[in-house]
Nucleic acid binder design. Structure first.
Lengths: 227, 227
DNA sequence: GAGTGGTCTAGACCACCAA
DNA sequence: TGGTGGTCTAGACCACTCC
């Protein structure tokens, strides 16, 4: 093995064997470049990667330390719902439950930084995998970002229209567990109060609020990833 | 603004304005380096970053394309429980509910790739924030990795002993929502069936199984991050 | 075969910040 | 104020893969 990956592996190995203990200072990039017989840029690439991963902590002048309490970073892939279902080999379909213009709940307006009294597009959509309920989408859209006339969300889901037509740059996402309310229970065909996995996301293009969405997943849903 | 970050910003801007549409090919690194008046390595750094983020798709010879269906990557920080609580300004404490040697459930053994009939250390711990139940930890430990005599997990939590003494390299993590079982309900002081946010994690050092743990969070827990 | 991204080099300048 | 990481350059070779 060669290249910066071999250096990353060697550094990780020295950390695991406690040759470089947690909290300890490791040699400078220059020293390591000399030891490994490579350019400093190559060492930099390896150490930068490990710092991103949370294994190392780097500061100018202070040097590079092994993280005392490593903060592992897990990465989750946020995909289009259709892809999520299709990649499991199931057929995808969706059904718009309701659609209209109304005032958003206080929480939604607050999350998007919009006045409470604004009128937003409210969409409730059921997504199905192999014809069975997969998740309920409760979405509030900022009408200011839509073209005139507004797209037909019964043909192309709002989810996909947005990724195709609004290249968003920022947002935040939250996961939680909540009991199914009456609407969710009816849509997913489960008893009210059933534990549901909830994804909530607010999306902005720059400072411009785009949409807020809440996804209520069917029971048994798992969000998985590797560390 | 200068440097590779300005190039990343410019590329992002061209994507958002549809100058470079989704699925479209963008100029080669060499061409962009010429246009921006910088070295190819600088362009490479910017494009590589965007590819990691899921905005671009890169292939040798084929060139660089704007991702047609962008797969956004959310990163979650996996911390030590004590830190999680302390960073919210609350005081941390924990209490071992039960401790012993027994045969793991089939699912735990399977996840770790261990035979079902092996004896593992089984620990149930309640973690508290400001003296109130915060989460229940249900952990199975591979005894093979423990020193003799075994550490006293009533003094230092298994969670922290592991990060301090076993530098693990791999693992997987899953999030779900489940109704509280009787033990969880009693520990967290909530009615059975309450929707709980569950984190399950399997940890390995190389191919060597270390531990499997299930964290049942108190109601209202949210896992949040920015995109 | 040829064009692209992936990586490496040797050198350089700079920003930061602990001593 | 000196040492460290952060970044950039100009050039080079290679691996991959589409044509």
């Amino acid at each position: 093995m060669q290249g910066w990956e071999s250096i990353r592996a060697e550094v990780l190995s020295r950390i695991q064997t406690r040759l470089w203990p947690p909290g300890g200072l490791i040699p400078s990039e220059e020293a390591l470049a000399l030891e490994f017989g490579c350019a400093r840029a190559t060492v930099n690439r390896a150490l930068r990667e490990l710092a991103l991963q949370g294994v190392l902590e780097r500061k100018r002048k202070a040097g590079t330390r092994v993280a005392a309490l490593p903060i592992r970073k897990a990465t989750l892939d946020i995909t289009v719902i259709r892809h999520d279902i299709a990649s499991r080999g199931q057929s995808y379909s969706f059904h718009v439950l309701s659609q209209g213009l109304s005032h958003p709940p206080l929480m939604v307006a607050a999350r998007l930084g919009l006045p409470e009294r604004i009128l937003m597009i409210h969409l409730q959509t059921l997504h199905l995998a192999d014809g069975k309920p997969y998740l309920v989408e409760d979405r509030w859209l900022n009408p200011a970002i839509l073209p005139d006339p507004s797209p037909d969300f019964t043909r192309q889901s709002a989810n996909e229209w947005l990724v195709a037509n609004v290249a968003y740059t920022t947002g935040d996402i939250a996961f939680s567990a909540e009991p199914a309310n009456l609407a969710e229970a009816a849509a997913l065909n489960v008893p009210p109060g059933t534990a549901l996995f909830i994804t909530e996301r607010a999306t902005f293009a720059g400072d411009h609020p785009i949409t807020w969405v809440r996804l209520s997943h069917r029971p048994g849903y798992r969000l998985q990833t590797v560390l």
